[in-house]
Design a protein around this nucleic acid. Structure first.
Length: 260
DNA sequence: AGTACCACCTGACGGC
DNA sequence: TGCCGTCAGGTGGTAC
């Protein structure tokens, strides 16, 4: 699931539960989730230290520890974190577990193993090295416009490309385009100025609203596509029919009447 | 340089 | 009941 709003919720969750507690031990139950590190390195880097603060960039979460080290977390499609004292019955697929000195635990769960856990020094270096664009929640209008002006692909593809701007995935690109009234296959360099402005405003509003709703579609306004994101569903705007199609291999939902 | 497609994984669901 | 294909909100490599 996790796109920018979801990861922002995870960040707040980690901030609220897991900071300033001594990490007694770290255990990895599936090494395939590790990125450029090993269980041994993770243990030696984290055990005995404490999480200090969490920072999010796009869909990545970095949790800093004393000593200039950061735990890197990416959630893929099925990842999340959970803080608890007694192992919850509905918690499966814990890949990495952090045990704190207060008897509580933080689990990084990820069913499909598409995410990753690692250790990085500087967050800025990581962003540079991976060519991540500015965070979608922070990008200013001028930069946003210049990004959109140069590409020749579909608007949807551009919004989802993490090298352009970081944090938007399949779900929220659909929502943003729906709110902006722009067809997902619109060629990005053929967008008019007022459409780019509208897209930018929609992006900001959607991301903020989603975070305010705890990234939970059930909490979102009825005027949003997310609660109606199904083939044949009723468009909350025009009462027409939501259609499903595929754009660059990803399932895409949109309203043909509202989005031109 | 930019875009399209497949592989990486697991599990749920519908059809036969 | 069981097997099979398909699909799922991400990313990175490779091939055009």
């Amino acid at each position: 699931m996790p796109e920018l709003p979801d990861v922002e919720i995870f960040k707040r969750y980690v901030d609220a539960t897991s900071l300033h507690k001594r990490i007694e031990s770290v255990s990895v139950s599936d090494e395939r989730i590790l990125r450029e590190t090993t269980e041994k390195k993770l243990k030696s880097g984290l055990e005995g230290k404490a999480f200090d603060s969490a920072v999010r960039h796009g869909k990545y979460l970095f949790v800093s520890l004393d000593g200039g080290v950061n735990l890197l977390m990416h959630f893929g499609m099925t990842g999340f974190v959970r803080y608890y004292k007694t192992t919850p019955g509905d918690l499966h697929h814990t890949r990495v577990l952090f045990d704190f000195d207060n008897g509580y635990h933080l689990a990084y769960s990820n069913q499909r193993l598409l995410g990753k856990i690692g250790i990085v020094g500087s967050v800025d270096d990581f962003i540079d090295k991976n060519n991540l664009g500015p965070d979608a929640g922070e990008i200013d209008f001028t930069v946003f416009s210049s990004v959109l002006a140069k590409g020749r692909g579909t608007v949807k593809g551009t919004l989802m490309n993490q090298n352009n701007l970081a944090g938007i995935g399949n779900i929220y690109s659909d929502e943003i385009l729906y709110q902006a009234g722009i067809h997902p296959e619109h060629k990005e360099n053929e967008l008019e100025k007022h459409q780019i402005k509208k897209l930018y405003e929609a992006m900001r509003t959607v991301l903020k609203t989603a975070v305010d709703c705890g990234a939970n579609p059930d909490e979102m306004p009825d005027s949003y596509l997310l609660p109606h994101r199904a083939d044949g569903a009723e468009c909350p705007g025009c009462k027409g029919t939501i259609e499903k199609t595929k754009i660059s291999g990803r399932s895409t939902y949109y309203c043909p009447k509202c989005q031109k």
